[in-house]
Design a binder for these strands. Structure first.
Lengths: 200, 200
DNA sequence: TGTGTATTGTACCGATCAGTACAGAACTCT
DNA sequence: AGAGTTCTGTACTGATCGGTACAATACACA
């Protein structure tokens, strides 16, 4: 028994996520967010408390939409874990070649607000951890690495994660496509995924 | 034949560099800069034109002070290039263990303003390129990699660079020391530097 | 057809942002 | 000592920041 809201709250959150993704936390001003989300100031504050809370919710949304998708690539689809790692890095290349230079919201958050705000840092760390665990699983299920020690795989999972973060950070800074491609080439060779050479 | 300036322009630039390094471009407000550089608004604008120009000059300063230092580690000191790469990553670990969580100004710039401003992006890319070339040189002068193809070394140099960027980005986002250590462990093993195990 | 209630639209808030105007101060040279 | 010149200190600008107050609005229910 009240006035109904004009917007779908999930859609609005998705819009917010995309805006933060493209602009970054600081550069995504309230004006930009309101415009992109198609709602008024009061509605936004009524529904999302404040900018930081909105960002945290957008990060949660990103987790579901992008991080979990990456984790799915790392943990399902192919028998061999190394090939799945391979696929993840190839998908990054593919995005770049399609003109997507937004990088990764999580990685941008790590470089930006997470350095200042503990609440944001906590969420970022949790998601990064999730990814490193997925790398670990993939390595464990890889013919080339299953025999290595638990510690070795843990180390390598962490390395793959920082590699991923660095790659997507550089992409956002307009690094030439060829440089990105080279980096992935070397990483693929290193991990030794199933597929012989380039493909996508 | 005029009033002499009260500050040393090089010292001021060094201060500015450190402030940008710690706070990041956006968060380093004029107020913070003026305070930290110990000068007044007029003097700053008279000497450095505007904030962005100051940042570009601070980036140049960072190139001399930090990037070139890293490049020196990669290109001089030891006979074996892989060991020099090893040393660079170990120095990152050492900084973290000493409580330095500022990361790398260049990497933060890559993730932040370089994504928006072409002038900044250009400088960032130039410096990143310089680093990847140094990695290439180190690989070429490494017993373990000298025999590989030129292309392979180029790929791997680019990978080492993105690894470096990712690592320092994660450090700034307050990633646990152990995770950083793990990542470096794996990277060291991968590169196969001379020194057997941990050291510093 | 009211009446209660939650959302919306708008106008506003103080704070802070980067940048500027300009008078006064501090020096060198004549 | 005076003129010329450059730097400094302060006060100010308009724009924008995130956030709030409050009346108008649109609905469900009685």
């Amino acid at each position: 028994m009240a006035r109904p809201r004009k917007f779908d709250i999930e859609d609005a959150l998705k819009d917010a996520m995309n805006i933060f993704w493209q602009h970054g936390y600081d550069a995504a001003s309230l004006a930009v967010l309101l415009e992109g989300m198609g709602m008024t100031r009061s509605s936004l504050y009524q529904a999302f408390v404040d900018k930081k809370t909105l960002f945290l919710k957008a990060l949660d949304r990103y987790e579901v939409e992008a991080v979990d998708a990456a984790i799915a690539v790392l943990t399902t689809g192919s028998e061999d874990g190394a090939e799945r790692i391979d696929r993840l890095f190839c998908s990054v290349i593919e995005a770049v070649k399609n003109g997507d230079q937004r990088g990764c919201l999580l990685c941008s958050a790590a470089a930006g607000p997470a350095a200042v705000d503990p609440d944001i840092s906590e969420v970022v760390q949790r998601q990064l951890n999730k990814m490193s665990q997925a790398f670990y699983v993939a390595l464990t299920q890889s013919a080339a690495h299953a025999h290595t020690s638990e510690q070795e795989r843990g180390d390598m999972a962490e390395m793959l994660l920082s590699q991923y973060v660095g790659l997507r950070t550089m992409i956002r800074s307009k690094t030439r496509d060829e440089a990105v491609q080279k980096s992935v080439n070397a990483m693929r060779k290193f991990v030794g995924g199933g597929r012989s050479e380039v493909s996508a």
